[in-house]
Amino acid sequence: MLIEQYLQVNEICHQEKKALSRYFFEREVALGALDETAILDKMERNLEVMEKAAADGLKGVDSFSGLSGGDAKRLLEYRSMGSPLGDSHYLEAAMNAVAINEVNASMGIICATPTAGSSGVVPGVLLAFRDRLKLDRRKQLDFLITSGGVGILIGNQASLSGAQGGCQAEVGSASAMAAAALVEAAGGTPLQSGHALAIALKNLLGLTCDPVASLVEVPCIKRNAIGAVNAIIAAEMALAGVESRIPVDEVIQAMGSIGRMMPVALRETALGGLAQTPTACRIMEMLQSKGHIDLKSL
């Protein structure tokens, strides 16, 4: 099978004067599994799951293991008191991303985007900007369609799995997906979306997957915040006319290549990095012996 590349998609969009979301929507219709209405209905349902997860997370949830939780609520309270650094959509996106990933860790319902561990990034950005950019419901679904389409291109040219490519393949990919979609939502061109994708992904290249006690919590939840914020700054640069010196498909392939070179200890096995710090080892031991982590007795 011919692997689709971003620059080919960009060329088609350019010639046919098409938005990325239109291209990826038509591509999905052509697969033949679902008709136009069914695709939009299914994406709508995914969006509703994302909205609910964000709202639940902001109320404050604890993880199933006991290791994490409540940080989205902290950010919300901090923000409503007035951050000394000024209110921003960056903070709002980070807060949403944390909220969704905390719901994931609490065994709540989420929509994997592209994975469960990185499920906060894309909706985190979308929910923070949909009012500011006056995105109607269909435009919000287009945001997810563009994100998903970009995810297909990244997944097939590199990887979307932490076990194969480290965190760069999960949060890195999610961030690149959100960056490309945000550029489109803000009125940028497919070429600018490509630069945003490349910039976002480059910024997170090399990110390892070394989760404490193998749980999808530390550092995953806060990584969702950085993935969301990184997507915004990449989109801003691209909209300003900043270009990635390395072409987008080469950046994607570099991510895949770095993933293959990454030691197994740093690819979701919890055998290295943060997962092998003295504190992480104590956490692991506590989880093994008690089945639950009591942060006070660490």
């Binding site: 065994m107 709540g108 985007t113 469960a116 369609i145 998903g148 999808v216």
Partner: peptide
């Protein structure tokens, strides 16, 4: 499919 990327809807965490 787009839904290989955006989805599945599932109970977390993994």
């Amino acid at each position: 499919s787009l839904f290989d990327i955006i989805g599945p809807v599932m109970v977390g965490p993994s």
